[in-house]
Amino acid sequence: MASDARVLARLAGPLAGFLSRGIGRWIALALLFAAMAAAPFVLGEYATVILTNALLYVVLALGLNVVVGYAGLLDLGYAAFFAVGAYTVGILTLRAGMNFWLTLPAAVAVAAVAGVVVGGPTLRLRSDYLAIVTLGFGEIVRITARNLPITGMASGLSGIRQPWLFGWHIATPRDFYYVFCVLATAAAIVSARLSDSRLGRAWLYVRYDEDAAEAMGIDRVRVKLAAYVTGAIIGAIGGAFFAVNLGAISPPSFSFSQSVSILMAVILGGMGKIPGVILGAMIVVLGPELLRSLGEFRLLVFAIGLLLIMLFRPSGLWPGRSHAK
């Protein structure tokens, strides 16, 4: 009996810890979803629009995180895929009169093809070339959009109609807020599932040691391309919903600084860590808004804040995957 009690006591500690971790996690998630659902009613329309933008950034940052955080590829032109998604939807709905939901697979396909065309040749080279090529690609997409009649030149496309979903007209800021809640949640689930998979591990293997990964039978070019194209598709989906949300798109939305902002969200929270990247996206969008009372100094203060974070937590705000050094 005494020994039974000891065994029980030994088991109870970790077991209780496990249960509370499990239950605690579910409670935290439930509270988070409740807060997300209630936010538009509590905070009003202006805040809802800002939060929608933050959620768009969460989607984009999670997409870029697959490329930068998981596969370790520096992409400086991620906004190009965001643009590809937005313009594909804009052109097909306006010029071809297609239903938004039918243009969505087209946006995904165009982004995937663009990803293969840009990544295919470049990913054979080592590391830094990709940064240069993606930087160029980002600018090419934006400048092309600025100069082609089909993309509406500098003034862009406007009058993109808001979609219907089974009799629900997605029209108000609150409607779009919920749509982006779903998108951000989906992006987080997709990221989590990818990271815990054969492909997700392969990204880490290649990132940590390309030669050892090759020696283990991993095709580094193919694995990197998979990351690049996955990121491209997520970016394009974000862009597609961005287009119908605003109803109008123009080249400045897809500038180099947009690419940098998304990259900043990924690095700030902690590359490769899903909660960290979400936090980073929130900070990048909400930070300047919360500092609005500082007037013209707000971006200066925000920049100093970012510098301090990088100085004191160079690997991002969210704690790392392991404590080992």
């Binding site: 599932r193 998979s197 492909l199 591990r201 283990m216 039978g217």
Partner: peptide
């Protein structure tokens, strides 16, 4: 990592 070349699942399967 060694089993990578003996298995097939890709992004769709993982998601």
């Amino acid at each position: 990592s060694g089993m990578h070349c003996r298995t097939r699942a890709g992004a769709i399967g993982a998601i």
